[in-house]
Amino acid sequence: MTFEINGQEHTLDIPADITALEVIRSLLGLTGTKEGCGIGECGACTIVVDGKSVNSCLMLGAQLDGTKVLTVEGLATEASLAPLQEQFMKNHGVQCGFCTPGILMSTHALLEENPDPDTEEISKALAGNLCRCTGYQQIFASVKAAATASRDDRITGGKNG
């Protein structure tokens, strides 16, 4: 099986019965993606596959073959956080941090598809990511700020366009 994760290509021989989440966490050691429930109810394991958010606990590892995957480790560069991460920092969108990687991935997929989402659209994109700490309000503020920042950037022709 060959697939690309965070810009790096991997060819792996994997057992048939392991999930995409296990491939990512156990075989590749990318532990930023979390397991919260194992049955697709919490969204902590959300990754982006070919531009779409999916629960990696409900995806068979073998189904990653030929895909492009993004996990939380692929957002920031060595030099700096991604604009999305910056906004979660500035707007206090993180408490315990366990749901954070999944929330960032759902948000990333949303903003790629819809750079200017309204509250309803954010809600639709994030309802599958449970958070028990924040009550979601500061997360929404972070997402909106990220959208605004990237819009301003586009208008001014900035580096993130």
Partner: peptide
């Protein structure tokens, strides 16, 4: 297996007692 959102629950719990998993996705 198509989307897998139902069958994966059985795969993980070991309830899937089949020799093959056919991916039609």
């Amino acid at each position: 297996i198509a989307g897998g959102t139902d069958v994966m629950i059985d795969v993980k719990s070991g309830k899937l007692d089949k020799k093959y998993l056919l991916d039609i996705s």
